[in-house]
Design a protein around this nucleic acid. Sequence first.
DNA 1: AAGATACGCAACCGCTGCGGA
DNA 2: CTCCGCAGCGGTTGCGTATCT
Length: 218
Amino acid sequence: MADHVKKGPWTADEDSLLSHYVTLHSKGHWNSVAHFTGLKRTGKSCRLRWLNYLRPNVRRGNITLQEQLLILQLHSRWGNRSWSKIAQFLPGRTDNEIKNYWRTRVQKHAKQLKCDVNSQRFRDTMRLVWIPHLVERIAATSGQSLPACTETSTSTPTISESTLDDNSVNVDVSASCSDTSDWGDGFEAGWWEGDEVESSFESLWIEENIHFLQQLFD
DNA sequence: AAGATACGCAACCGCTGCGGA
DNA sequence: CTCCGCAGCGGTTGCGTATCT
């Protein structure tokens, strides 16, 4: 008999109970967490709530240009099966958030262009048009020239095939990160901190781009 | 002002892989 | 070797809010 498992949105009291418990006892063993906190939630639900909302350093709000760039590049490399992997390179962002971003924004614009989001055509559009454009915008909003690709600012920033493997990612986002050879701890103290980047948020999917691409395809 | 529609996000569901008994 | 329970993941759904008519 199901013991009245509660579903739906979490209340502030539930959040407080859960975060208090996890702070004291550390995470893991989520079924135990659910049991000992007295929450009428499943372990899965507790885990999800913690990861997506309660854990420290969760970043909320607009996806920045730099984050958009990373998502596009990493997704083009890894596809839909790696949201959590992509999330690892966007500290503070959850796989759920990235997945939502992709589904609501990117797929929407693929639809506008009347092509499948998984099609070669859409991927080429990403690679050849949107990503370079995004790199330019990042450079413009940060007021910097592009250190490593100044003379080829319209060239395609790509994930380096030669250096990319399951454990090391080397993405050319030189517009925002001059050194991408090590995206470990150093990366975590990176570009997203600071109001300038946050306030400079603007959509990659500006109307002029969409219009241009539609013409290109027609 | 009110209803319809679109959008964004939080949360749930079902599947998979792993580790322990 | 097999079974079982659990954590983790991607896909999907549903609800609240914003925007449009």
